[in-house]
Design a protein around this nucleic acid. Sequence first.
RNA 1: GCUCCUAUCGUCUAGUGGCCUAGGACAUCAGGUUUUCAUCCUGGAAACCCGGGUUCGAUUCCCGGUGGGAGCGCCA
Length: 462
Amino acid sequence: MIRVRMAPSPTGYFHIGSSRTALFNWLFARKNKGVFILRIEDTDKERSKKEYEDDILKSMKTLGLEWDEFYRQSERSGIYREYLEKLIAEDKAYYCFCTREDLEAERESQTAAGVAPKYSGKCCVLTEKEIKTNLEAGKPYVIRLKIPAEKVSFDDMIRGPIEFDLGLVGDIVIAKNLDEPLYNFSVVVDDILMDITHVIRGEDHIPNTPKQIALYRALGRPEPTFGHLPLILSPDRSKMSKRYGDVSIKEYLSKGYLPEAIVNFVALLGWHPKNDKEIMVLDELVDEFDIDRVQKAGAVFDIEKLNWINRQYLNALDEENLTEKIRGFIPADWKTNAAMIEAIKPRLERLGDAAELLHVYFELPDYDGTLLFWKGEDRDTAGILKKLANEIETAGDRFDLEEITAKIMSLVPQDKKGDYLWPLRVSLSGSKTSPTPFELLAGLGKEESLRRIKIAIEKLGK
RNA sequence: GCUCCUAUCGUCUAGUGGCCUAGGACAUCAGGUUUUCAUCCUGGAAACCCGGGUUCGAUUCCCGGUGGGAGCGCCA
């Protein structure tokens, strides 16, 4: 039975990189009929915030990444304490009373000597009596794991064999005290207790892996299979950061990127299906997913591609659905109709752009009357507009796009399209770029269209 | 500095020794449809980091170099 987990720490809003780690874990679980676990790693009391945890949960749900089991490390401190005591009792871990200043000095001298900084192991040789005295005196301490100076290797699912020399690492701190475990330790204890079979996480965790393997060995448990995903990069190829744009799922959602589009996009960052298919929803991704096909090198986040994918999803929406989704992004008093929605659809990149595109239907901007002239020349523009207005007058109250198009075109000479359609469009939109005059008529309706044309004629002073 | 990871068009990638005159997508450029914008259609330009091997034959395998990245916390 395959069991994987996503283990975010609630120290910030759900990151786009985390969303991909979550997605790949989720896909791996679903593909193999396994279990996907969400575990909140909130052992750092100073930095963890409920607000962030809420955002992580909400974002994952929105993206469709439902979990089968849920845990919170802050609720498991008794468990860690038990294992900590066990390791100390078995002489696999020990109390360390070195002060931060001691350590700092040690590190500096090592760096100066050109060697890799590493804890000397000074407190490892403390006698039981010394430890007891220190503890009773209330001296601050940490707990360190004895790291054997040996080579460890593991077979990464994505990268193949990776070897490390633990001799370079030194005895790592695994807890601030009996009740405050640190990352490397709590992760391993939980992964053991939760029967995690595959640890799939970001490449930045590769250096943690040998330390964690040492922990598995100290705890006498077999290690899981590890798989390290490539990083999502900023345009400068460094780990994706705020500097180049939004990094949280929350921000993308609030700009009007569809959850399906975000999922689809991050799936393609470092992974590719066997065929050339690019637009895929979660179900299709499960069908196509194969962890052997994930890349080894980092992938640059390209917002242009996300925009394109988002457009694909937006365009596939029917009018009713799109209207519903747009609702939250435009003023509440804007009563849209089907014609407006259909008109802006091909121009819509993000739902957040809807207000700007729809604006023309709810407010006629002030414009210069000369804008009405096709190619800057007044060829009886006012006369033409009057003719068009008369024609529109004869139509029914509600315009059907096709009908109104046919009606108007019946009036327009083949070789004078610009003379007729340009002023019509400008009079309806007050702008030189807008949807087509027919789309405007259909969206605006008879009354408002005639009102706007009248304004145009007045601007022409006739 | 030390350790580890990594390397195909600007970007995401296909490619697992001959099918590669290196394929697709985004972006870009040109043309077409469209009164404008967007959509849409057609076409173009654009890449195997370098050097050694191995092999009849390397983008593909091996080694070295170089470039890029990550990690080196009493953060996760």
